[in-house]
Amino acid sequence: MVGTLFCVSALRLGIAAPSAPGPGLIPFGAAALLVLFSLGTIAEALFTSKREEALPAIISRRSWAVFTVLVVLFLYALFMPRLGFVVATFLALACLFRLSEGQTWKRAIGASLFTTLLTYLLFSRLLGVGLPQGLLEFAGF
């Protein structure tokens, strides 16, 4: 599907001729090969005797942990500019530490607070990385 989309877009860009290659010529070639190899992979899976080891289960007992990490990361990317680095990182890390087996909310919050302040001092104050201040702008964080 991705290959086909790229093929169509590359054709719109114009492939011109090999003697005067247009901006779409080489992407079109790569996309066509992607379609070809993907069809080959499907055919291989369907028609040949497989010697590959069995695929690991896509959904496992702890898939929820993966899902939670991803949700936390997406929310972090979405709200970090508004909340600021310190607040967003503190909240995200608290959730991630809590995700670990055997961690209580109290310990997770403590570890998150310590790590956030340490990384803020290291990256923002020491290395001069420009991190958004957000809600704590008034306090100079």
């Binding site: 055997g102 961690q103 790590t115 990384t119 420009g130």
Partner: peptide, 26 residues
């Protein structure tokens, strides 16, 4: 369990500090 949040945090800061935009984090 202690390492992984730290690895993620360094990745987040690393991605953000490239162009100071959350697009790279995305």
């Amino acid at each position: 369990r202690i390492l992984f949040p730290l690895i993620i945090l360094f990745c987040l800061i690393g991605a953000y500090s490239l162009n100071n935009t959350t697009f790279d984090i995305g």
